[in-house]
Design a protein around this nucleic acid. Structure first.
Lengths: 153, 153
DNA sequence: ATTCTTGCAAAGCATTTGCACCCTG
DNA sequence: CAGGGTGCAAATGCTTTGCAAGAAT
């Protein structure tokens, strides 16, 4: 569950962004929190380690990261913004009842969809990516089985 | 392109909601605008006909309609809220470049996905619905071919 | 040294809320 | 006429912005 700071620094450097404690903190928060954190959750997390970081800076950093493809925004029903550090293509499980969104990686399914749309193209439209939004319920109240769900990168 | 007011009134009555001009106006706006309007677009539309309707009322009405299943919220990357009057199950095409979101109805695809997940259930998880979020580009700059895309209900 | 980044506080803006009044059923 | 719905305006709260000071390359 430990996050590799060296790796985080490289991710930032790769995009020709300056490596600052604030940026490291934001990425560290996102990778640690993992469950599509809100800006608020990220700020709270960071304030434990670096209490002086400004809220505005976190927002600017998040924007920068999204712009440079370091993280992504998560689709929500218009609540607050949520961010996602998993860049590998994946789908989302929206757990009805609690507000949780889990990642779901399934390359076989991706392949099937790709094949389907190769054979059944949407006329006049060029697809660049398909993401499933799966709504449902966790059957046992514990977390979802780890064989099927992959939350990590 | 004309919206049937009688039908709108019935939709409201069906849910045991009082039929008021404000509610009729909101639904009329959503069905007329059709392209996942924002609250602001809905308010502008309504103000042409009923200039005195209050903004707060529109928000309350939208909330009520969502709660009673008359309309749905659309998933977005945290911008403003968008609403959708199409209740039949459908997917969304996110047009990169412009901000438009189009509906995409494909029952064959729905069937295929259903079958897939019957055979390959996500352990511990009960799926209630699957919505595709398809990103891509319109190839010709005009609107997407009508054979493939269904914007209406 | 230069350019990018940060902190701070104010501003912006979509949405929500409270409450007296009004209208639908 | 009873209970829900509306209008208004203030409040809320997330996010953005502007700019001077600071830090990274």
């Amino acid at each position: 569950m430990h996050v590799d700071i060296k790796h985080i620094q490289e991710l930032i450097k790769e995009k020709d962004l300056k490596v600052t404690p604030q940026r490291i903190g934001v990425l560290e928060a996102i990778y640690t929190l993992r469950n599509h954190p809100t800006a608020e959750q990220i700020i709270d997390f960071i304030h434990d380690k670096y209490p002086s970081i400004a809220i505005g800076t976190v927002y600017k950093t998040l924007d920068t990261f999204v712009k440079y493809g370091v993280i992504n925004k998560v689709l929500t029903e218009g609540e607050v913004m949520r961010y996602d550090g998993v860049l590998k293509h994946h789908h989302h499980l929206y757990n009805e009842g609690n507000e949780e969104i889990q990642d779901y990686i399934n390359e076989e399914l991706d392949e099937m969809l790709k094949t389907y749309f190769e054979k059944n193209a949407i006329e006049g439209y060029h697809i660049s990516s398909i993401t499933l939004h799966i709504s449902g319920k966790s059957i046992n109240k514990k977390s979802i089985n780890k064989k099927s769900i992959n939350q990590k990168q």
